[in-house]
């Protein structure tokens, strides 16, 4: 693979391979309400990642015995399309995909008022169309927007972002190459309003100081992500709001 030839992840001028600064995010583009038949949906382009999320529900749970008597069941299926990676990925769910499905479901559950919909299920489907490092963060970010679009009562949104270590430096939002040959990766997700961490995973080795530094950097990244999320939600619905205002005036 071509990646093995790359040894240095930082250029001489201190920038990364894609000309980003150490604490710079990749470009992010979000669209809301892309799947008509779903209760709610959203699409994100985060650097080279392209991810689509769809929400179905609250609806009846099948099989019935899985339903919970006191709250809604949140289920998630994270799936990478066969053409999303450099080499073809076999379409059957891999160990990694099963893990990410579980981790994403538990990371978004705290923001949903599940107790309002007992005995029902909320199904999340995430399809990765193109991947380039940090898909779990992008998937979580887009999932919380799709939940908001579905009209499901939420306490807050979830913003996710990763930090890591490359060439001895702590950096924000690692891409595919940095993730593969970098020294450490620390994806986190927070509820921005009260700064609760709903996801924290780590791959690689960091000292305690490095960990603290990376965690703080990732939290800063999440805040930037949150601003982008708010902007995306507002811009979709502002038009609707302006038009309703006109109607009120007319009446």
């Amino acid at each position: 693979m071509s990646h093995n030839k790359v040894k240095k992840l930082l250029k001489k001028n201190g920038l990364r391979l894609d000309d980003r600064k150490l604490d710079e995010l990749r470009s992010i583009k979000i669209e809301i309400g892309v799947i008509e038949k779903a209760s709610g949906s959203a699409y994100i382009e985060w650097g080279k990642n392209k991810i689509m999320a769809a929400i179905y529900g609250p609806r009846e749970v099948h099989p019935r015995r899985l339903s919970l008597t006191n709250k809604a069941l949140v289920r998630c299926r994270y799936h990478m399309t066969p053409f999303s990676t450099e080499d073809r990925k076999r379409p059957a769910p891999s160990r990694r995909e099963v893990e990410l499905s579980k981790v994403i479901a538990t990371a978004v559950e705290p923001i949903i008022f599940t107790e309002l919909y007992p005995r029902t299920g909320i199904d999340i489907f995430i399809e990765v169309l193109e991947s380039d490092g940090g898909t779990r963060c992008a998937a979580l970010t887009v999932t919380s927007l799709a939940l908001a679009d579905a009209g499901i009562p939420l306490k807050d949104l979830v913003a996710a972002c990763a930090a890591g270590k490359i060439d001895g430096q702590i950096v924000l939002d690692m891409n595919g190459i940095e993730d593969q040959i970098g020294e450490a990766d620390l994806p986190i997700a927070i509820t921005p309003r009260n700064k609760e961490i709903t996801l924290l995973q780590m791959d690689g080795i960091l000292t305690q100081e490095e960990f603290k530094k990376a965690l703080n950097l990732a939290i800063e990244g999440c805040k930037k992500i949150y601003d982008i999320q708010k902007e995306a939600l507002r811009s979709k619905y502002t038009i609707v709001k302006e038009e309703t205002e006109k109607i009120k005036e007319e009446e």
């Binding site: 939420l154 807050d156 949104l157 921005p192 619905y237």
Partner: peptide, 9 residues
């Protein structure tokens, strides 16, 4: 009044 709000605002 009648401002557009999002979850958690």
């Amino acid at each position: 009044k009648r401002q557009l709000v999002i979850p958690g605002e």
